[in-house]
Amino acid sequence: MVTVTPLEAELLELAGSVPDPELPVLTLRELGVVRAVHARGTDTVEVELTPTYTGCPALEAMSLDIERILREHGVREVTVRTVLAPAWTTDDITEEGRRKLREYGIAPPRARTSSGPVPVELGTTRTRGTPPTEDEPAPVPCPHCGSTETELLSRFSSTACKALRRCLACREPFDHFKEL
């Protein structure tokens, strides 16, 4: 077991305070993508960052932001390394992160009970969610009015990590952070 030094803990906190470039209401710590900070001496630091999706284009912006904030705090040399294992899941988003997503108008991912695909059914004009099953235990509540009567409009949305849904009660469309 590797112990974390007070300096590393401080730098991890700093790196984690960087806002997500796509979802600026969330910090990288709340998103759960900053894995570790390793200090080599006092002015050389390696940060482990994990992508949400393998092709996530925000990864480079995240790396640059982490480098900048650590340099501003006196770290001379910062290396941000991408780590894939263990694979990130939406369960890595903190409770605070989920609350902020909801307030921002994005339905947070539900806690996963299985890694299976989300079953959906295609209608003539759009996709309807199927009734709750073992694989899909809970409905996706509307982040605006809280109604659980919502429908899937598009399985992919503005970013790879989201799907587009609409509330049947208040009729507002909203993004849903897909469970991964």
């Binding site: 393998t54 894939l84 294992a85 694979a87 990130w88």
Partner: peptide, 10 residues
């Protein structure tokens, strides 16, 4: 294995 574990979900 690390990439596959990540990508299989996608």
């Amino acid at each position: 294995a690390p990439l596959a574990a990540k990508a299989v979900k996608e």
